[in-house]
Structures are given as structure tokens and as C-alpha cells.
């Protein structure tokens, strides 16, 4: 029990006012406290908070350590208590899979099922609008926007100038905005 003796001796010195021994004691206590805090299921910032709360409690309660008794049980009891407090604060009870209520009540952060249908409809509307464009504009959109190829690549592949491609893309986007926006307006008017 080398650790126990080292810590107990440092704590006796700290009770006598030895700041250097106290600093060393607090540092040496960190692994012991962290182990207790982790055993309580805390991680990350909540664990850090619990460790620091334990240090503050240790500081305030240092007169309650009886030098005739072992130090580690005293320290571990404080760490355990502060870890439980931190856990309650965080509302972070361990989620048990075999607990049906907790299992059913667990929120699913993935998109709702109808989100996929809506996305599909939007993609189909966009594809119809692109297909309705004049050939030059459609080529510009497909190559530059959908396949994300560079102006240089598309210019070399199609033989059109970069300026012509840019103009076509610009006109295509304007036309798509008009047709898709118009559809949406039409929907809105239809509903209203």
C-alpha cells in the first residue's frame, strides 16, 4: 500500500499547512478520483467537472480527515458522491436496452420516413426541368453543376468556349429558377 501511505503522509502535511505537499497530493489524487468518476459512467466534460468538484470538496472537508485512519477510503467516498451528483446534474442515467420504456422512448435523430419521399419528388422535378432546357444549356448544367467538372475540362471535351459555357449555365439556372419557382407558386396558388 505505497500509494495509501504516500497520500496519507501528504494529507497530514497539508493539514499542517504545507502547500507544496498539498499540491503534490492533489495531483496524485487525480488518477484515483478519475477512476471513481469513470466507474460511475461519466465521460468527457461531465467527468472533468466531477473531478474538480471532488477536489473542491476535498479542500473544504480537509479537517474531517482523521490522520489515524486510511486516506483512500475517505477520498474515494468524496469522489463517489460528487460523481453521483454530476451524473444527476447531467441527467445522464445509463440507458438500459432491456428497459422497454427507455428503449421505446429513445429519440431517433435520423430524418423522418416521409423526408425521403419529398427529396425524391424534388429530384424528379429538377430532372424534368433540366430535360426541358435547350441542348446547350442542358449540357452546361449537367457537366458543370451536376458532375462538378471544371470549365477547362468541359471546354476541352465539348469544344465550346469557356465564356459560352458560363453564359449557358447562367441562362439555364435562370430558366430552372423560373420553372421550379413557378411550379412551387402554382402549388401554393392551387392550395390557396
Amino acid at each position: 500500500m505505497a500509494l495509501e501511505e504516500t497520500l496519507a503522509a501528504a494529507m497530514r502535511a497539508a493539514q499542517g499547512g504545507d502547500a507544496a505537499a498539498y499540491r503534490a497530493l492533489l495531483r496524485d489524487c487525480l488518477p484515483v478520483i478519475a477512476a471513481r468518476v469513470r466507474a460511475q459512467g461519466l465521460t468527457g466534460a461531465a467527468a472533468e467537472d466531477a473531478v474538480q468538484d471532488t477536489l473542491v470538496t476535498l479542500h473544504r472537508a480537509r479537517a474531517s480527515y482523521d490522520p489515524a485512519r486510511p486516506f483512500l477510503p475517505w477520498l474515494r467516498a468524496i469522489a463517489q458522491r460528487r460523481a453521483i451528483d454530476a451524473q444527476r446534474r447531467a441527467g445522464r442515467r445509463p440507458r438500459e436496452v432491456h428497459d422497454p420504456v427507455a428503449y421505446e422512448g429513445e429519440a431517433d435523430d435520423r430524418p423522418a420516413p416521409e423526408a425521403g419521399l419529398e427529396a425524391g419528388e424534388r429530384a424528379a422535378a429538377l430532372a424534368r426541368a433540366v430535360a426541358a432546357l435547350p441542348a446547350g444549356q442542358r449540357q452546361a448544367v449537367e457537366e458543370l453543376a451536376l458532375r462538378e467538372r471544371s470549365l477547362d475540362e468541359v471546354s476541352a471535351a465539348t469544344g465550346r468556349s469557356k465564356v459560352a459555357l458560363k453564359v449557358n449555365l447562367h441562362r439555364a439556372i435562370k430558366a430552372l429558377r423560373a420553372s421550379l419557382g413557378g411550379e412551387r407558386d402554382g402549388e401554393r396558388n392551387g392550395r390557396g
Partner: peptide, 22 residues
Amino acid sequence: PGMPTETLIGALAEDLAPVRPL
């Protein structure tokens, strides 16, 4: 230890006054 904990330890050590064990 991370920095904040190390800072806390420094503050607590500075605040240390002798106590009589209960």
C-alpha cells in the same frame, strides 16, 4: 491533468491554511 484542473489545484494550494483534524 488538463489545464483547468491544474489551475484549480494551484488555486486550492494557494488557499491552503492549516487545519486541526476533527
